[in-house]
Design a protein around this nucleic acid. Structure first.
Lengths: 195, 195
DNA sequence: TATGGTTCCTAACGTTCGTTAGCAAGGCTG
DNA sequence: CAGCCTTGCTAACGAACGTTAGGAACCATA
């Protein structure tokens, strides 16, 4: 099981370096020669490991989509938990992914538009279903009286906004951990919260 | 006064078309030939009106910075108003700019990083002072007991997040106007609000 | 009727882009 | 030791990039 890891090693290294560059400079403004220089090799050499520049972006975006989706599924797996609890768990999971994979998350959030079809449509479908699940979670919580908010749709928007903005200010050495951030978000945006 | 308007007409048209393209495809991914095609002319012709591609971006970013700054100054001009009232007015003004100049706002929010020095540093300084003013406004409101929030710094972050996210969902034909959005933001993010 | 400003064209410049072909060195596995 | 896989190189391809030069209409004002 450890024997296949070195096989993907260089490719994973390319993904990781590209992720950092895509985040800092943007996908379109990052050239393959820049990426190669950051890796200490020549531009042509990259193509021994990947098929195209967009393939890297594709891999980043869909890997993160998988991580976010998996977190959501896990958070909502326990059907006996209240909607508010499921929501808080989902937010916690989302924040954890954002923090643990910060560079890739930013690429996922902002560079997906440079995907070409049909990957673009597939990506947008995933994103839509993810957001819809959150909206439904909030609606169920409000309906059950576990959450209070004057406008559920508006609360959902504010929630996504805060989650998307998080990588802009989060510092690893800050005083807030994932759980505390998730708690604050839930409290601040959704009034009460039933355990 | 109307005679100088036609003089700038073509240049303004270039700015406007470029703004829409920069928003949809990103600055780096938008070519001068694309921009020319959208204008119905050849690429070289653009340079009768502008000096460089970056000059367009520069003009967009700093024009919006001016608009946001002017709104903030106006909202805080009345020193006799409470901090909470000044904050609500500032948010209202910000939302109004976002909605009225949606394309340019998105470019302002996301494409500024493609500015080169020294414009980049100048831009960041403006942005920092703008955010600092909001943080101070919130702090003053909390100190005066007009606003309630468990964590003022966190509330400021959530506020900027919601404002930045707004162009992503706002539709002109939606049911919420600028004032209602500003009111909801203030209420949702800052507990009570003294008139 | 001359002049100057605005507008746009064609043609091309030098550079950079993503990508490919062909080859070679090194290491692991049979 | 043979073969394969990984890794990287040099050199170059065609395309696209931002930008410039030089010229030509058009339209206003003097």
């Amino acid at each position: 099981m450890e024997t296949t890891a070195p096989t993907l090693s260089r490719k994973a290294q390319i993904d990781q370096t590209a992720t950092a560059l895509f985040r800092r400079r943007g996908y379109a403004a990052t050239s393959m020669r820049e990426l190669a220089a950051a890796l200490g090799i020549e531009a042509g050499s990259i193509y021994s490991h990947i098929r195209s520049k967009e393939e890297i972006l594709h891999r980043i975006c869909f890997r993160l989509a998988d991580e976010f989706m998996a977190g959501l599924r896990q958070a909502t797996a326990d059907a006996s938990a209240s909607a508010a609890t499921q929501l808080r768990r989902a937010i916690e999971s989302h924040v954890r992914v954002l923090i643990h994979d910060a560079d890739a998350s930013v690429v996922f959030l902002h560079e997906w538009r440079h995907l070409s079809e049909p990957a673009l449509s597939e990506f947008l479908k995933l994103r839509h279903s993810y957001e819809a699940a959150y909206r439904e979670l909030i609606a169920r919580g409000v309906e059950a009286g576990e959450l209070q908010t004057p406008d559920p749709a508006f609360a959902a928007l504010t929630l996504f906004a805060s989650l998307t903005w998080l990588p802009n200010w989060y510092r690893k050495d800050g005083k807030l951990g994932p759980d505390q951030i998730a708690e604050r978000l839930t409290d601040q945006l959704l009034g009460g919260l039933a355990k």
